Simulated scan of single mutants.
Amino acid sequence: MPTPLKWLFKLFDALVVIGMAVMSVLIFTNVVLRYGFSSGISYSVEISRVILVWIIFLGAVVGLAKGAHLSVDALVARLPQRARFACFLASYGLMLWCCWLLAKGSWALTRIEWGNITPLTGLPVGLTYAAGLVAALMMALVLLLELWRGLRGTLPSTWAGAKSDEAPLAVSPAITQEKLQ
Rank of each mutant, 00 (worst) to 15 (best):
W159A: 02
S106L: 05
Y35W: 04
L123W: 02
G115A: 10
W114I: 01
R152S: 11
V45H: 13
E166F: 13
G59Q: 05
V25Y: 11
R78V: 13
A83P: 08
L127A: 02
Q81R: 13
W148I: 15
A90H: 00
N30Y: 08
R149L: 13
P173V: 12
M23I: 13
V50L: 09
D165P: 10
L64Y: 06
V76I: 11
L26Y: 02
R84T: 10
I55M: 09
A160H: 04
M20L: 15
T121C: 07
A135K: 03
F57H: 04
Q181M: 14
F12C: 04
S106M: 03
L123K: 05
L64R: 12
A60P: 00
K6E: 11
L143I: 01
D13I: 02
L151G: 05
V22R: 00
I112D: 14
A65K: 05
L147F: 00
V32H: 09
A174W: 09
I47M: 12
I56W: 00
A86H: 13
I55V: 10
G93C: 04
I112G: 10
M1Q: 10
T154Q: 13
D73G: 12
L151D: 03
R82S: 15
G40F: 06
A86D: 14
A135E: 07
V134R: 02
I47K: 10
M20V: 15
M139A: 08
P119M: 04
L102M: 12
M20D: 06
L109P: 06
L96Q: 12
I41S: 09
G150K: 07
I117S: 14
L141S: 02
L133A: 03
P124G: 00
S44D: 11
K104W: 07
V25P: 03
Q181G: 15
C98R: 11
P80H: 02
A135L: 01
I18L: 12
L52G: 03
L137C: 02
A108P: 07
S38P: 11
V72N: 06
H69Q: 02
V61D: 00
A170H: 08
I112T: 13
R82A: 15
W54L: 07
L11H: 04
Q177M: 11
I56G: 05
V22P: 06
P156Y: 05
V76G: 08
F28S: 09
L15I: 10
A131M: 05
A65V: 06
Y129E: 05
Y129V: 06
I112A: 13
L120E: 14
H69S: 08
L8R: 08
G19M: 04
K179A: 15
L123F: 11
N116E: 15
R152V: 06
I56P: 01
